[in-house]
Write a protein that binds this DNA or RNA. Structure first.
Length: 275
DNA sequence: CCCATGGGTGCAAGATCTGC
DNA sequence: GCAGATCTTGCACCCATGGG
């Protein structure tokens, strides 16, 4: 298998202000009655729950043996994914909105594209699909390599904070993402973490590498977890705050309660100005 | 009414399987 | 080992349909 995903990706801001609203408009949500909306959502759901696969494999899920049915379903999925050119006009597909991308080349029989959800596609799913907890677990399993700092530690996170892991669905709404300054005023202890997140995300707007976007989303997840009032009021969870901060230190190089982090930032900024 | 989408078809081509 | 069948991927054409 050849991993292809080295290309450029939009940043998190464009998810909130372009990708999400556009997806909502074009592909709707779970309560959409439109046939087109339902067709698109079926594809996205298959990729979410079954993991990366080719269009042929997607079609086979529904028609295991009937080859002609697989054939026509495969065509439908392909056209919705990559768009189509008909009567001289081109219509964009789901890939053009960056909800889905080419993950790798399948070499099962013919060499062809294997598709999967992008991080934005995962966020859209979590936001729109009303997945059950079991289904979110499946998404986490299928995409643990794509979001290693959260999905890769899913079982562990569940063992620590239980059902609160499913708060990850809230990320898909873009919650708390670009108005962090509002919350940081109230919660002093939070200020440092928020600043860290802000700096991290700001530097990311320059390089749209999916791995780094994944890091930002992971950090965003942990920040959100630490913030949520219901989470903070839960006595059992309260004791976990310290744990989470330590966890962040470990996986994100976040330095809590010291000036070291900010000193480092100043030094690097100064160095950058010198150069 | 228009245009995007749905449903169907055919063609091309490479990979793999099956029967001999 | 060979030939033909089958699987898989990809592209483009045609016409119908239905929602805006």
């Amino acid at each position: 298998m050849v991993i292809l995903n080295e290309g450029k990706m939009p940043n998190l801001l464009s998810y909130k202000y372009y990708i999400r609203p556009t997806a909502h408009q074009l592909y709707g949500n779970k309560s959409s009655k439109s046939k087109h909306h339902q067709n698109v959502q079926r594809i996205i759901k298959i990729l979410a729950l079954e993991g990366p696969m080719t269009t042929w494999e997607m079609a086979k899920i529904r028609f295991a043996t009937d080859n002609s049915k697989i054939r026509s379903k495969e065509k439908e999925y392909r056209r919705l994914l990559i768009g189509r050119t008909d009567r001289g006009t081109h219509s964009d597909g789901i890939i053009d909105l960056n909800l889905v991308l080419v993950d790798s080349i399948s070499t099962k029989r013919n060499s062809g594209n294997r598709y999967r959800l992008s991080l934005f596609g995962i966020l859209y799913c979590l936001d729109q699909m009303n997945f059950s907890e079991k289904e979110v677990d499946r998404v986490a399993k299928n995409y643990e390599i794509i979001l290693p700092l959260v999905f890769g530690k899913w079982g562990f996170l569940k063992s620590v904070i239980g059902k609160y892991v499913y708060n990850i669905s809230l990320l898909g709404k873009g919650l708390l993402f670009d108005n962090l300054n509002i919350i940081s005023i109230e919660k002093d202890e939070f200020y440092e973490l928020i600043s860290f997140f802000g700096i991290k995300v700001n530097t990311l707007t320059e390089s749209f590498n999916e791995q780094k976007i994944g890091e930002a989303i992971s950090l965003w997840f942990y920040v959100t977890m630490l913030y949520f009032p219901n989470l903070m009021e839960d006595k059992k969870i309260k004791g976990m705050k310290k744990f989470f901060t330590k966890f962040l230190e470990k996986i994100m190089n976040y330095k809590h309660g010291s000036q070291i982090f900010f000193q480092k930032q100043r030094i690097s900024i100064n160095n950058a100005q010198k150069n």
